[in-house]
């Protein structure tokens, strides 16, 4: 819906055309969608929210995805000074990198090392580093992951095909307050001299949640660039 231009200068003319949905070819909205439309229309009519605000925020949400987090990770791999700032204050370093934090959250970046593997979860709801990674996948919000990640992280990791050696510490961060977490994965071997862009292409959402490592990524010469 955010693609078609849609003048909103008639701010007091009420609402129906603000509904960014439902052209006539679509099925009629379900009960909860009707509720969403009705609540939004009423809030706009009462001038509690502006008519363009929802549309703008959808554009903000659409601009955030794991590709953004991957750029942060790749920069940290190639720039020791950025990496140090990222680990000291994740939000500030990301903001300096051009990623705004549209909510009130802070960011702690957790670095995986030879001796420590990080995993993030929100057992109470679905806290996630949305400004940097976009919206979380459904499994991250569902009971099995939330219930088990803090109790049997190694079994959970195994279900993602990830086996962490017994002598490597597993550190599970459960988000409960204003802090969000981003895992800084280990840089895969054999990527010396790769460009930042080629490195970023290796970094997956799941690696930045900590459920997979990048060590097992198949690496071919052609992935690198001269």
């Amino acid at each position: 819906m955010s693609t078609h231009p849609h003048p909103h200068d008639h701010s007091h003319e009420v609402t129906h055309d603000h509904t960014p949905c439902a052209d006539a070819s679509e099925a009629p909205p379900g009960y909860y969608e009707v509720m969403e439309i009705a609540v939004r229309e009423l809030l706009i009519e009462k001038q509690l929210i502006g008519p363009g605000e929802i549309r703008r925020q959808i554009e903000v949400l659409d601009s955030r995805s794991p590709a953004l987090g991957a750029k942060v990770v790749a920069r940290a791999w190639v720039d020791p000074d950025f990496r140090a700032r990222l680990l000291t204050n994740g939000r500030k370093a990301c903001e300096d990198f051009g990623i705004s934090f549209y909510d009130d959250t802070e960011l702690i970046v957790l670095e995986n090392t030879e001796t420590c593997h990080n995993l993030i979860v929100c057992t109470l709801c679905s806290c996630y580093p949305r400004p940097v990674l976009g919206l979380p996948p459904d499994w991250y919000k569902a009971k099995p992951y939330r219930a088990r990640a803090v109790k049997e992280p190694r079994a959970v990791l195994a279900e993602f095909g990830t086996v962490i050696p017994a002598d490597v510490e597993i550190r599970v961060s459960d988000s409960t307050a204003q802090v969000r977490f981003l895992v800084l994965p280990r840089r895969p071997a054999g990527t010396d001299g790769w460009s930042e862009e080629a490195l970023a292409a290796l970094v997956t959402r799941d690696a930045m949640i900590g459920v997979v490592t990048l060590d097992s990524q198949p690496l071919t010469e052609s992935d690198g660039e001269a």
Partner: peptide, 21 residues
């Protein structure tokens, strides 16, 4: 809890509007 099923779905337009709201 059960085994993890790696579920995901693209948000319905109304779901994304709800998130933006």
């Amino acid at each position: 809890a059960e085994a993890i099923r790696r579920t995901d779905h693209p948000l319905e337009p109304w779901e994304k509007r709800c998130h933006a709201l």
